[in-house]
């Protein structure tokens, strides 16, 4: 199957007339990786945020405006996670990238969202996202949804390359399915594992791989942990025998280390994006690393 797809991709590439590559800017390194997989040699992709950055808090820079000005397509995480991108796109005055234009791709379109708040939403709930939890890319099954949105964007901009993009998508989707099966098998070893996470980044991952999130180091999204909250968490983790703390690589270790020292838990520091840790070069590497960390933690538990 892979050979057929590769041959089809090669033929499609050969059949198409020469054309300048599409310049694509993405909000995250994961989206960059998926764009490169779907666009192949026809695209030149750059991510505005680095893999180690907190996507809630990317500081817009003038050099980003310059890059967006020259871009054919922008791909965003969406769901108001990367609101910093709006001022950049406006400042770049690149019509093709404005909301509703062919070069605007929101990778979240079509994702089944978790933790959608109901009723009144306000800052008493912390830094809440009104459409639901925006960390959807941490379920690798959603890679296919993201890739499909990117595929649609690429086909809008270069319809003559549609066959190539379709073939690349099929190959990417097939690889995602293969990897999902392998990760699922590994995750069976820690299915039902109770964890505390620093921020609410992991509900999609937890649903996919059978983790049970017992609480967060942050009392509410975006609110730093207080002593009383950590004290309460110590009691809860002790009562529920929670021995693993999963923390994003960019958050401070003080809170997780305090909890670990109090109850003898294991802290798993996890990258959330490609480039978020040494050796984590691709989107798929993120899951290899997190699952390996959880396997090790579950073994020690």
């Amino acid at each position: 199957m892979k050979k057929i797809l590769l041959t089809a991709a090669a033929l499609a590439l050969w059949a198409c007339p020469a054309r300048a590559e599409l310049k694509i800017m993405t909000a995250s390194t994961d989206l960059k990786y998926i764009c490169e997989r779907i666009g192949g040699a026809e695209v030149k992709v750059e991510s505005l945020a680095s893999g180690g950055q907190d996507l809630h808090m990317v500081e817009p820079r003038p050099s980003m405006v310059f890059k967006l000005k020259k871009a054919d397509m922008v791909v965003r995480v969406g769901l108001d996670l990367d609101m910093w991108l709006d001022s950049l796109v406006n400042a770049a005055r690149n019509k093709a990238l404005f909301y509703g234009q062919p070069g605007y791709v929101d990778a979240s379109a079509g994702v089944e969202l978790l933790e959608r708040p109901e009723g009144k939403v306000d800052a008493s709930m912390g830094d809440i996202h009104i459409y639901g939890n925006p960390h959807y890319w941490l379920d690798p099954a959603n890679a296919k949804v993201m890739a499909k949105n990117i595929l649609a964007g690429l086909k809008r901009l270069a319809p003559e390359k549609a066959a190539l993009f379709d073939a690349n998508y099929e190959y990417f989707a097939a690889e995602t399915d293969e990897r999902l099966a392998a990760w699922g098998a590994r995750a069976a070893r820690f299915k039902g594992l109770k964890v505390v996470t620093y921020h609410g980044s992991w509900p999609y991952f937890a649903r996919r791989f059978g983790l049970e999130v017992a609480g967060h180091v942050e009392p509410k999204p975006g609110i730093p942990p207080s002593a009383s909250h950590l004290d309460g968490l110590v009691k809860k983790m002790t009562a529920e025998n929670v021995k693993v703390i999963l923390t994003e690589s960019y958050y401070p270790r003080k809170g997780p280390d305090f909890l670990a020292a109090k109850i003898g838990a294991v802290v798993v520091t996890a990258p959330v994006s490609a480039g978020g840790a040494a050796g984590v070069k691709t989107y798929f590497d993120v899951f290899d690393r997190v699952i390996a960390g959880l396997e090790a933690a579950a073994g020690k538990k």
Binding site: R76, G78, L79, D80, M83, K95, F98, Y99, G100, Q101, P102, Y104, V105, D106, A107, S108, A109, G110, I130, Y131, N149, A152, G153, R156
Partner: peptide
């Protein structure tokens, strides 16, 4: 310029901003 923008088709979009 705004008139020209209206003529362009709207691709599927995600959700953002005030609903």
């Amino acid at each position: 310029c705004a008139s020209a923008a209206q003529e362009t088709g709207t691709p599927p979009q995600g959700m953002r901003g005030t609903p």
